[in-house]
């Protein structure tokens, strides 16, 4: 990642309102060539609206956004030659075959036949879809549909790729293929902005921005974000996580608490002190638990903590 390079995507105070909602509020960040940048946040955080404005399909209300050097507010068509946008909903034609869909998008971007065949051959191989070229897009599995969407989006070698929750509802194998293709693209200097609902996926990004109600909570590398969480995180493993939560949620020194598969994660102010207190408290209430230990915070911990209390140091 070359920070000195000119940003491929640049947002400055970008805002968009719909009747009764500020969908995006004064959003500012940059995405550089060769970078995978993740937009993380719950539904309604403003991820889709942000991507739509950057894709030039929705005009911003205030602020500016530049994509591949074009101001999307003033010249929404300018950047379209250089970007690819994959909406959340499958945007391909179900009654067209895989090849026909690829050809359609190649033609729209002015990709010639030789280049199209070369590129689609490579991409289909990378996606493990070479034998499905003649199949109707509507007959593909969810994961294959998303991969085909990505292939259509990449056929013209865009400089900027905008992906809206691209791996939602996708099987793990396809998801792995998908991410492998994305990593290969970064080597070619492509800037990738992806929104995701999966926090584990956000950790694969070079940098992430956490959005909540249209506002940027913070933006940094996943590692830095974790380090910024000055408080510690305690993981309680228990066969009855709900009872643990019940018992501890009003305890002193808790910044946030979230249920995980086999227990709860608790963000606390003082790890050593609270660990002992919680242990005593759970024993007294006869709530079964296996152990309490300090763990490295995940983005999920960070996110929940930021959203629930906003007590994380900025």
């Amino acid at each position: 990642m070359n920070i000195a390079a000119q940003a491929a995507i640049m947002l400055a105070g970008l805002s968009k309102s719909f009747p009764g909602v500020h969908a995006v509020e004064r959003l500012s960040f940059e995405v550089y060539p060769g970078e995978i940048f993740g937009l993380v946040g719950p539904d309604g955080a403003g991820k889709t609206t942000t991507l739509r404005m950057l894709a030039g399909v929705m005009p911003p209300d205030r602020g500016t956004a530049t994509v591949a050097g074009f101001d999307v507010g003033r010249d929404p068509e300018g950047a379209k030659h250089h970007l690819s946008y994959m909406p959340q909903r499958f945007g391909l034609y179900e009654d067209l075959t895989v090849d026909e869909n690829i050809r359609f998008y190649a033609d729209l971007f002015g990709v010639n036949k030789a280049e199209r065949e070369l590129r689609s051959g490579q991409l289909l191989r990378a996606a493990g879809m070479s034998e499905f070229r003649g199949r109707w897009a509507g007959k593909l599995s969810g994961g294959m549909k998303q991969k085909l969407g990505l292939i259509c989006a990449l056929i013209h070698r865009p400089k900027v790729i905008l992906l809206d929750e691209p791996t939602t509802g996708v099987d793990p194998v396809s998801r792995r293929d998908f991410w492998r293709i994305l990593y290969e693209l970064t080597a070619e200097g492509v800037a990738i902005l992806t929104s995701t609902a999966y926090l584990d996926e956000a950790e694969r990004c070079h940098r992430v921005a956490l959005l909540h109600q249209g506002r940027l909570l913070f933006c940094d590398t996943p590692a830095h974000l974790k380090a910024r969480l000055g408080k510690g995180v305690l993981a309680v493993t228990s066969p009855e996580p709900r009872r643990v939560r019940e018992q501890l949620q009003n305890a002193e020194g808790i910044s946030s608490l979230v249920l995980t598969g086999d227990g709860v994660h608790i963000v606390v102010d003082d790890v050593a002190r609270r660990m002992a207190e919680f242990q005593a408290r759970l024993k007294q209430a006869q709530v079964p638990f296996d152990q309490i230990q300090r763990v490295t915070p995940t983005i999920e911990d960070l996110f929940v903590d930021a959203v629930s209390g906003g007590k994380v140091r900025r």
Binding site: A55, K80, M86, G91, L108, G149
Partner: peptide, 10 residues
Amino acid sequence: GTMEQLISTP
């Protein structure tokens, strides 16, 4: 939902 992607092309 195909229109959204279509209008993001040139």
